[in-house]
Amino acid sequence: MTTLPADDALTAQQREVQRFLGRCLLRLQQYEKLMKAIVAHHEISATGLPLASNQEQRIADAASKTLGTLVGALFGSYVTTDESDGATSESDERDDVISFKFKMTLRMSVEDYDRTQSDLKELVLLRNNLVHHFIDQHDLWSLDGCRCAQDTLTAAYSRIDQHFEQLRGWAEHMDQARRLAAEFAQSDAFRDLVIHGIAPDGSVDWPSAGIVRALRDAAAELAIDGWTPVASAGRWIAERLPEHLPAKYGCSSWRQVVHESRLFELRYRDVGGQRAAWYRAKQN
């Protein structure tokens, strides 16, 4: 067997170190790319009619984050604990604007949450050492130093790969939830919930109900001194917004809608010898 000259042997070992380091960095890039996808897509929201999503902005925000920042964004948002109370963050949503928010989470025990968070902080430290300090920590100008560097990189790749497989499992979990959500979003139940404010159990969220918005629109067109005839509003809505009728909301009349919503004042007046109902939005 031919023995390589010392310089050639060192060069070969240095190239192996480069290959091992490149493999680690490529796996880290795959990890960061997948992490950015989870951070950007685990929460979906939209406002207005038609619904306008903020997804492009979320993708852009995630793309600019470092791995450490991504880990911080993931915990408490996508990765949560069994003790989380499910409270949502405050927003600037308005009562008179349709909005929709869908958020996927991965719940863990407090112990698993703390351990996983600590493990990912170590991964961030590992990444930073590989990117910024590796040549300071290893003597790459000696054969022994190169061999030590290769051993370090082999162990590092194993740790990075384990984290990548874990993250891929999380992504598959999220993707399954997204598919189920997409099926629901195409259903009549979803349209009733978002557009009409009618939950799958038939209960009505009156402040967000489409028929309440329709009554407000009718009042804006038909009000006389701030009050609107209920019958006139009903005819106006039936002509322009026929999907918003009392029966859809479990009511037998427009007066019942006005009463059940508890968002309007109801007053009766004598009009041409007949008792007629008029309404207006409750004053704050």
Rank of each mutant, 00 (worst) to 15 (best):
L245C: 12
Y279K: 04
V212N: 02
S91A: 12
S84N: 08
H138S: 01
D151H: 12
A182L: 11
A40V: 02
F184Q: 06
R107F: 06
R262S: 11
Y78G: 00
G72C: 01
R235N: 13
L26Y: 08
L180Q: 10
G234V: 01
W170R: 04
D119S: 14
L26A: 06
D161F: 05
Q162N: 15
D201R: 08
H173T: 09
T105Y: 05
M174C: 07
D61P: 00
Q13N: 08
L153A: 00
T80D: 06
M1D: 09
D92V: 13
P207V: 05
E239A: 10
S158F: 11
L263H: 01
L21W: 05
S232Q: 13
S253G: 06
G197H: 02
K248F: 06
W141E: 14
I224R: 15
V271E: 14
G145C: 03
E243H: 14
H163S: 10
S158G: 12
F75I: 01
Y279E: 02
E172D: 14
N54T: 13
T105W: 04
F184T: 03
S91K: 11
D112E: 12
A46G: 14
C24M: 04
D188Q: 15
A171W: 04
A37S: 11
A199V: 06
R275F: 06
R235Q: 12
G250H: 06
R23M: 09
V258S: 01
R168V: 03
D112K: 11
W141Y: 15
H132T: 07
D270C: 11
S261Y: 03
E265K: 08
R115M: 10
Y78A: 04
E165F: 12
R159W: 05
I224L: 13
A87H: 10
C146P: 00
T69A: 15
C146K: 00
D201F: 05
Y279M: 04
P207I: 05
E83A: 15
H41E: 15
A63V: 03
H196D: 12
F102I: 07
L193P: 00
A155T: 07
D192N: 12
Q29H: 12
T47V: 15
I160W: 00
W227M: 07
Q137P: 01
K282F: 09
L106H: 13
P229C: 05
P50K: 06
G210N: 04
V204Q: 02
A6P: 09
I135K: 10
H196E: 11
Q55F: 04
K36A: 01
R240D: 08
K65F: 03
R159D: 07
D270W: 13
G273A: 04
W206T: 04
R267N: 11
I224E: 14
S261L: 05
R179N: 12
A9F: 09
S77E: 05
D61Y: 06
H244W: 07
S253T: 12
I38S: 00
S64N: 10
E260M: 07
A9G: 04
R255K: 13
L180P: 02
L222E: 03
L266V: 10
A199N: 13
A63P: 03
I38L: 01
T88M: 15
